[in-house]
């Protein structure tokens, strides 16, 4: 069965969704990712969806669940590279993806993750405040 590869870079897990993201693959990703976060004590997950051609409410829910699961496992999740057409479509559909952090590019997303992780470990500013800067 097709599975989406999960790459580990330092504290961060990198996922690039490139195949036709259908239901089974999506559910498998959610499972794989949860395990990998724990196995690697990852502090951040970066999901690149720039190659995705559409997101429907089912996928929206999976992406939301990934983010929530990550949060429970003490890990930040950032969605990067959403195409304008998809952003418009899912807004029209009514999907808002609350609580999901987004960034324009993988580079921006990586920076956002590093900042969030750093502020957390330093304990100076809470992650919440750091996030607020970008929200």
């Amino acid at each position: 069965m097709d599975r989406i590869p999960i790459l580990k870079i330092g504290d961060v897990l990198l996922v690039t969704i490139q195949v036709d993201f259908h239901d089974r693959i999506a559910i498998a990703l959610l499972e794989d990712l949860s395990e990998k976060i724990v196995d690697n004590s990852a502090k951040g997950v970066l999901i690149d969806i720039s190659a995705l051609e559409m997101v429907d409410s089912f996928m929206g829910r999976i992406l939301g669940n990934i983010s929530k699961t990550a949060k429970l496992l003490d890990c930040h999740c950032v969605l990067v590279g959403m195409q304008p057409a998809i952003a418009i479509t899912i807004t029209e559909l009514g999907i808002t993806l609350p609580g999901i952090y987004t960034a324009l590019t993988a580079e921006d997303g990586m920076k956002l993750l590093t900042d969030m992780v750093k502020s957390k470990t330093n304990g100076k500013t809470s992650a919440k405040k750091q996030e607020a800067k970008w929200r």
Partner: peptide, 13 residues
């Protein structure tokens, strides 16, 4: 509001 949320989904403010 739709414009604001679509912009946010893209990762911009």
């Amino acid at each position: 509001m739709k414009t604001v949320s679509a912009t946010r989904l893209m990762g911009a403010e």
